[in-house]
Design a protein around this nucleic acid. Structure first.
Lengths: 351, 351
DNA sequence: TTGTACGCGTTATCAT
DNA sequence: ATGATAACGCGTACAA
């Protein structure tokens, strides 16, 4: 019951090692029936090529890497990665590739990780997530010669292709939804200005408002964390002329913001409407349930993996069109209040 | 600037390949100064052994696997894995090991994954999480001869060691906290009976109550999801004699339960106290902030990885004592109501 | 300490 | 066209 090798198969099929290799790699040079005979023999013996040996001989790792640089605290509640990874895996496994994951606390460590992965030849390519404006990683990876795919909004990145769901339609849908409900003072709690997906969502919010002819509401920079989302919300509610609706750049901040509003006795959605982004499981189960933007993260992962494998194999990019995100309307968004209180924290009942 | 090999180092140091290998593996058979000279030369050339070649030659993968079998939906909001993985990585990287991750939708697929990982020799060992009572995986892995560490409550598992933070002290602390606040009817929203950590938390709750001399409150089986947590909460609140406090088996269910209470106009903690488990980021930012049990998940990951590497190397287990979980008290738990309403949904103001 | 076989496929070179 | 042969990738380990 010991492990079989290519030699066992070759012997059993009465051919040479080389022939078995040709058969398994769909390479010309074999008559159809010997090819079939070889494959059948391999099937019987339960043999498949060893990735270890293959890796050494083809000078490839047959694995790709995902390095996530965040303090675990920030990462903890992030719903993105599990789905993304599931999608990635579904594509990789079909090509005999594996996913190697690392979670490191900060950016410097991430650079070290890439260097090591590349130097040791552990991976043939990597995904880069949470791209910053002027991010140094693409250049580093180019220097290392390590193929990469940017996971996030497509941008004119000189080094590597980007695969991402476009944020804009989802944010636009949220804004239009709120405008349709009569809101005219729509704020945004944004992701960090330095992060590409923070910036793109902010721009989408701004653009959508301009398109409807409304002025931009106030916009507070935040960092995608619950803590900062809560602080931003307090800041907005403290304004002399607070917004009647807030578009958050993710669910985590939206849920924290919701708690802030509730704790001040501000009725949601009676006095304040709220939308999130990402449609987390919990969003549907807070009070009131959160209106949010939902995108196909699994499909996204699959597409990113496909692109990365193409890049590694130097194949041309196949077109993948990811479905645009959709707005899931729940009870956290409702008609704009008829009378706008001058100061919501003094809370007179609405309608 | 092409990649160096062990031969380059050997030549540069004026020794044989074998000597370089001995030097890098701290093996006897080399004079101290040649050893040092070899290491210095390697440092100069920036050479480290190639995991690929090593893997083939030592007949090891130099990687361990983590297969997570859950529908992405369920996994999405799970805060456990990122921290756990960070801890795992910190240990693995020191030993030249890498972590290979897979996310599969259901249990059958997980079995397939293990079979494949083992058959292809992709990993030298795996972590098994979310253990079920009578789980078939340990036996499968034993049959495959693939070393495994159970991540979860220590239990008398015949095949593999378990590494886990003991749930009991944390749950007990929550129960005692509530008892100290005057609660006498303390319910539990449990994880699935078939899951080991569901069961262990339930038993901890039961034991803690008995120790204080209080009768068990009602206990509803749930499944760790927000959806089911909400349903369980509704069920509890519909009882003729509803509990004044609910101990949830995780934060996700607790937050969903909180929303249910709030939506019924039940004041938390005035009329109902709530505790969670896991201390997620969001728990501190819901309204009211959630009392929860916090454990050192990163340390847990580190310990599990260490044990797995020991198992792979057939070394004896070193003792690791993980710090017991601690109770983080926030505003969702408070004094038991003085007058217990006969039916909380008819909600007369409290105190 | 050194020489060399070995692990296990892949691929370039040859032979029919 | 088909298929065999042998070198190769890069460390490790055992005999000398």
């Amino acid at each position: 019951m010991t492990r079989h090798t290519i030699n066992d198969v070759a012997r059993a099929a009465g051919v040479s090692k080389g022939a078995v290799s040709l058969a398994f790699n769909n390479r010309p040079g074999l008559s159809p029936d010997t090819r079939e005979r070889i494959l059948a023999t391999a099937r019987e013996l339960g043999w498949t090529p060893s990735p270890r040996a293959r890796a050494l001989s083809v000078s490839r790792a047959l694995a790709v890497g995902l390095v996530v640089a965040r303090p675990p605290e920030t990462l903890r509640s992030d719903p993105f990665f599990p789905s993304f990874i599931a999608g990635v895996e579904s594509e990789l496994s079909q090509h005999g590739y594996a996913l190697l994951l690392q979670v490191v606390p900060e950016h410097d460590a991430e650079h070290q990780s890439y260097r090591r992965l590349s130097h040791e030849g552990r991976v043939d390519g990597v995904f880069v997530t949470d791209l910053y404006v002027d991010d140094a990683r693409p250049a580093l990876l180019a220097e290392l010669g390590l193929p990469a795919v940017i996971v996030g909004p497509a941008l004119s990145e000189p080094f590597w292709p980007a695969v991402g769901v476009d944020d804009a339609p989802g944010i636009a849908a949220a804004v239009e939804h709120l405008v349709g409900l009569g809101h005219s003072r729509i704020a945004h709690v944004a992701g960090p200005r330095e992060m590409v997906h923070g910036r793109s969502r902010r721009e989408a919010w701004s653009t959508a408002l301009h398109r409807t002819g409304l002025p931009e509401g106030p916009c507070i920079d935040s960092d995608f964390s619950a803590e900062a989302g809560a602080a931003a919300t307090r800041e907005l509610l403290d304004l002399a002329d607070p917004p009647t609706a807030i578009v958050y750049a993710n669910d985590l901040m939206a849920i924290a913001g919701l708690a802030v509003a509730t704790s001040r006795g501000i009725d949601v959605p009676g006095r304040l409407s709220i939308t999130g982004y990402e449609d987390t499981e919990l969003g549907a189960h807070v009070q009131p349930p959160l209106t949010s933007v939902c995108s196909d993260v699994i499909g996204w992962g699959r597409a990113a993996a496909r692109r990365l494998l193409e890049l590694i194999d130097q194949r041309p990019a196949t077109d993948v069109s990811l479905p645009p995100p959709t707005l899931v309307v729940r009870a956290s968004s409702g008609p704009a209040p008829v009378h706008r209180a001058t100061h919501p924290t003094t809370g007179t009942p609405d309608t």
